[in-house]
Structures are given as structure tokens and as C-alpha cells.
Design a binder for these strands. Structure first.
Lengths: 301, 301
DNA sequence: GGCTACCATAGGGAACCCCTATAGATCATG
DNA sequence: CATGATCTATAGGGGTTCCCTATGGTAGCC
């Protein structure tokens, strides 16, 4: 039983004439004759009554033809779904992003992406790098935005931008009016950090080696927002990525002070499986990043 | 796009592995590989992401596979419907019958048919011979029970039984106590007849040539039941087929008198298109007639 | 670096599908 | 009654498609 045969019997049931049905199907009359005879043989039922001057579906034939029509419609829907899905920029893209980027980059990125791919909504998964790696591997997300270095077999990366780190201190802090701070000055147990597992925590520790790893949770924040509040409340100082310090996040209660050059920074990149079937979606994301208009991000694309 | 290809993508989506999917479909791995590549090419969409150690449907692929499953199910139903329809004795048989036979034969026939073909209900069309002929030709009915002669191109007939005619007179009629009546005695304008178009009317006129064709409707009955009542009420005499005079129809108000031999009679037959696809249904009807147990019908089968 | 697992590609052979030509059957017509 | 018209079935050939085995290519793993 083939879809072609089903098309044949439907046409014959409608035309009630082999020659016309064949013409409608763009085949010769014998082709249709043989195909229908073959199908009848396969099904073990005579589907049509052939009389002189008329062809008419039998009792079974009528039911079979009706069902054949349904089957053909369903098959046609397959084609339609594929047709609609041909546009790689149509349909949800599953994006993973780390906690220290998501809330600050995505509002702008999504805005920019709308211009490039208006029909590609993002399903956003905010998580830590290690979990995003798993999700990429398991095909739970399509792409991820995270900080380099990031190496995973079968996964490609492309740098998006560099983002420098800034020192943040409470109002009235002794550094409040310094024009810049050398990294080694940021030291001791006064520095608030993210909890373990956040890659940005490790990047800060790398940039400021004098910072001691805290022994209690008191100096550990769950998120950059928490850290910011803790700094504002005078608990200590911290180091934050520039993106987290831009509009619309208020810096009224804190002072943002640059490091002395070379300013420490992190490189943010896009990551995706090399076999991902929607390369144009990657391109659209890159274009969206290119369309960002924020001094906090030093674009590499 | 073929049903086979749809089966392939469904299997691949389930197995997530070309080799296993191929095995499940009983084809070689390259066959499945090529078929899926071909389908992807035809649809213009990549349906699967091929990674090392995993195969996973793409966004479109997942939807296509889902729809493919629906299409396959509908196609399978075609097969099931055909399978169920293989029994020619399963499903309604459209039976036409003339007015002068239907009400008298069918109750017994249906009872007898139940034993032969319990799953073949009859859709009964009671009409006059000419109309039944049209319906047979137009495939509005499958078979007909009517009186011979009956010739129609492409239609076969088979005699079922002979049915003799009887004279019916009202109680107190001058013939009431005659043992038999010669046909030529039945004459003049005292004889009640069916309206024009009923074949039985013509058969009576053929058997009793002395009967004058009435000029007014006063002596014309719409049905045998009407005629019987008219006779009972004393309006005249008539000639009726023996089947219409048997149990459970009451003959209390009339006298039934045989003709002198050779009794006039009619030959009742089964008629069907020679291309009718359910010959076993014909056989079942013949068997049902054979199973009749009524002295009114002199079986020929 | 070799091994393993897995999918893609190549090439040959068989099956299938469709074609044209023609036969066969029935009905209408002269 | 022969003839023609109409319609479906059959025959035989040709081209495509499908599927096979064998092999290549690539990534991951020990």
C-alpha cells in the first residue's frame, strides 16, 4: 500500500471512470488500472465494481476510500509542517545563559534579535556553565551564552564580546574617590563573592589573586543582584562585570571604580553543537549581538 | 514522500540510532540513511541532528515525526477497514423488491437469511419493477427480487420460485363454493386490479384476457392489501398471488378459490449486476430462499 | 595511535512503476 | 447482424527507484 495507490482510489471514486481518474493523476489509464488491481489484491477486497459505463466503489471500497482520504490529508500535513519549518529563523530557539550574563545582556539582546529574526522566540535557560554544558550535550538547549574558556567535544564556540570587571564599593568607602584601583589592592576578606560554581567567581579570584576564599557563607551572594545589595549595605566591596552595572540597574548606593589598566575582563562567547541544524539561527544571534549598542560590551563580532 | 519513508523517520526518532532503526525496519543502515536524506532533501528541511553518539530530531523534525505517526496510523486504518470488509457477508445489502412481493416474502426471507448471514442486514427498497431496474443500473441497490421476465443489460437473474395466482371473492359471492375457476371465467368489469405500473396487474391481465381494463379508478387498488379490503367489502373479485394470502394475513372476510389447472402463476427471481462484487451475498440470499418453508412458494433453487 | 562506533557514500542488481500497444467486453447504430 | 465506440484489462519493454554489500570518513576513547 502506497500513498500513490491511495491517491488513485480516491481519484477513481470521484471520477467514476478509469481514464479520467488516470488523467487527473497524470498517469496512463493502464497504470491506474494495474495499481488499483494490485491494491485490491493486497487488501484482499474488491474496492470497485466495474460495470459498463460506470465504476462505483463497493461497500468496503467506499469506506476504504473515505479512510484513504484521511490518510492522504495527514500525509499532506507532514509536507506542510516541513514547509513551514523550512525557515530556520522560524520557531523557538532554546538558549542557555549563565546567571551573570542573562539578566543584563538578554533584555538588550532580545530587542536586537527581534529586528533580525522576529519569529524566533527564545526559550531561556539560566544556569551555571557546567549545567549548560550538559544541556548542550543532551540536546536540551540549542545554544548557550557563557564565558570562555569553554571546551566541549562536538561543541563550537564563537567570541561575542569582552566585558571588563569593575570594583564596586559602598558610598563612603575609603576607595570612593580613587580614579582607578590596581587588582592586587582588592584583597583580603572584605571582598564579597558569588557562591561556588559560578564561573564569574573564579574569574574574579583569577583577576585578584589576593582575595581570600571566604570560609563562611556570610560573604557569598547567590547572584550579582544580591552582591550589589550587600555592597550597598556596607558589608564589603566586590568585583562585578560591567554589563551588570549599566542602565537600568541603579548605582545610586554604590560607587563603581575601574581597575587600573590592563583592566581584567572576561570573554563572552556563543556555544552550539557543531551538528546543530539551524546555522542561520546562530547567524541571527551573532547579528543581534552586533546590533547591541552598549559601551559595556566590547564587540568581537 | 512515501509511507516507507515516514516509517523510517518514526523509527529513527524512537531509536535515536540509524543502525537500530534500520534493523527495526528490516532494512540495512545505508538504506535508511539514504531514504531519510532523500526525504529531508524533498522536504527541504533537515529533520535530524546527527551528532557523535546521538541522533536527535530537530525542532521541525520532531513535529514532522509526530505528524508522520498520525499519517501512518490513518494509513493503517485503511488496511484494517479493508480487512474487516473482506467478509462479503458482513455489511448491509441493499435489496429492492416489488410491492406485491415485499410485504409477504420478506418477513420469512429475513428470518431465513439471519441463519445464513447473521451480519448482513437488508436495506429494503420497495418499488415497482421499472424503478428497481433503474436503481440496479445506477447502483442504488445491490439486488432485486421481482417477477420475470426481467431483462436488463449487465444484469443477471436467477429464478427463485413460482407463485400461483388465486381468485379471491367476497363472502356470499356466487363463486364462493366452486372448487376451481377457469381463467376465462374471471372477466368483465367486476375484477379489481392494481394501478398501472405494477407488474402483477399486467400478469393478471395476461392470465385472464377477458378482464377489461377499467376506465375509472374505482376498481384500482394501490396495493394488494387495499385490493383485499375492497374485495372483502363486496366491491368485486380479484386475482392475487398465493404468497399474499398466507399466514398471517387474514382471509376471514374473503374466499380464496384456485384456478382450474394449469393454474396461472408468476416466476419470481433474483436480479443483480453481473459485476456485483459480493457474489457470496447472492449465494446467501439463494440459500435463504432455499430455507423458506411455505407452501405458497414452489422453490426453483 | 590504533580501536571502536557510527553515519555517509559508491556501485551494482533486483524490483517496481509507468509507458505504449493491444486485446476483450459491452453497448449503441446502421 | 455487423460495425463502431467506449471503456477496462493485459502484455511487454524501458527507466527509475529501492535496497543491498562494501567501503570511506569522522569523532571519541583507551
Amino acid at each position: 500500500m502506497t500513498l500513490t495507490e491511495l491517491r488513485y482510489i480516491v481519484a477513481l471514486a470521484q471520477e467514476k471512470n478509469f481514464s479520467r481518474a488516470a488523467e487527473r493523476c497524470s498517469v496512463s489509464q493502464p497504470t491506474l488500472s494495474v495499481a488499483i488491481a494490485r491494491l485490491e489484491d493486497e487488501l484482499g477486497v474488491q474496492l470497485f465494481e466495474r460495470g459498463k459505463g460506470f465504476v462505483s466503489p463497493s461497500l468496503v471500497g467506499a469506506r476504504v476510500v473515505e479512510q484513504a482520504q484521511l490518510a492522504l490529508e495527514e500525509a499532506e500535513k507532514v509536507r506542510q509542517i516541513a514547509q513551514r519549518g523550512r525557515d530556520q529563523l522560524d520557531g523557538t530557539l532554546r538558549l542557555g545563559v549563565i546567571h551573570t550574563i542573562g539578566p543584563y545582556l538578554l533584555p538588550q539582546l532580545i530587542h536586537s534579535l527581534k529586528a533580525v529574526a522576529p519569529n524566533m522566540p527564545l526559550a531561556i535557560e539560566e544556569n551555571m556553565t557546567a549545567n549548560l554544558a550538559d544541556m548542550l550535550r543532551d540536546n536540551d538547549i540549542d545554544v548557550a551564552i557563557l564565558a570562555l574558556p569553554f571546551d566541549l567535544p562536538g561543541v563550537l564556540t564563537r567570541p561575542l564580546y569582552d566585558e571588563v570587571f569593575k570594583v564596586v564599593v559602598p558610598l563612603g568607602h575609603r576607595w570612593e574617590n580613587l580614579p582607578a584601583i590596581p587588582p592586587e589592592e582588592v584583597a583580603g576578606d572584605e571582598v564579597l563573592l558569588l557562591k561556588a560554581g559560578n564561573c564569574f567567581r573564579d574569574q574574579v579570584l583569577g583577576a585578584c589573586p589576593q582575595v581570600s576564599s571566604p570560609e563562611t557563607d556570610i560573604r557569598l551572594g547567590h547572584s550579582i543582584g544580591t552582591i550589589r545589595c550587600m555592597v550597598a549595605s556596607g558589608l564589603g566591596v566586590s568585583v562585578l562585570p560591567e554589563g551588570a552595572l549599566q542602565h537600568p540597574y541603579s548605582n545610586d548606593m554604590i560607587r563603581v571604580i575601574p581597575f587600573v589598566p590592563p583592566e581584567p575582563s572576561r570573554r563572552v562567547a556563543l556555544a552550539w553543537r557543531n551538528c546543530f541544524v539551524r546555522p542561520k539561527a546562530i547567524d541571527a544571534l551573532l547579528a543581534a549581538v552586533r546590533g547591541l549598542d552598549s559601551p559595556a560590551y566590547r564587540l568581537l563580532v
